[in-house]
Design a protein around this nucleic acid. Structure first.
Length: 116
DNA sequence: GGCCTGACCATAT
DNA sequence: CATATGGCCAGGC
């Protein structure tokens, strides 16, 4: 089969991308979705992580929203996500990464194009 | 089988 | 420049 967009496959791809995020860097759901070719399914990226973020050892704490806000903080626990980011050198204030744009890591510019 | 919600993003006011 | 609203796609009940 050439390429049938199996949703389960989409989830696995999300995990693969998040796993490739270097320490001290952050990525946004939209960037990942866009990298996978589903730029309008940014919400699915978050949903995918929520389903297996705890099962896998993927650095899901490095995935924040476009504004650098720790939207998935509730899933990790109170202050856990922030502590992890600060531990990697990322300044977090008010559940929000300061100068997130500076630490932003775009998979579309650092990772090879995925097979569509 | 249909309706609502959701770790979002882009645009308009 | 900041805030408010709509749109998109899929999963869960």
């Amino acid at each position: 089969m050439c390429s049938l967009g199996l949703k389960s496959d989409f989830y696995q791809r999300v995990y693969q991308v998040v796993e490739q995020i270097p320490p001290g860097r952050i990525c946004s759901y939209g960037a990942i979705a866009r990298y996978l070719g589903s730029g309008r399914s940014a919400r699915l990226v978050g949903t995918a992580l929520r389903q297996s973020a705890d099962l896998l050892g993927i650095p899901a704490h490095r995935v924040v929203n476009r504004a650098g806000r720790l939207t998935g903080q509730h899933m990790f626990g109170p202050g856990v996500m922030q502590a992890l980011l600060e531990s990697e050198g990322l300044p977090v204030v008010n559940d929000q990464v300061v100068a997130a744009e500076k630490y932003f890591w775009d998979p579309r510019e650092h990772l090879p194009p995925p097979k569509i």
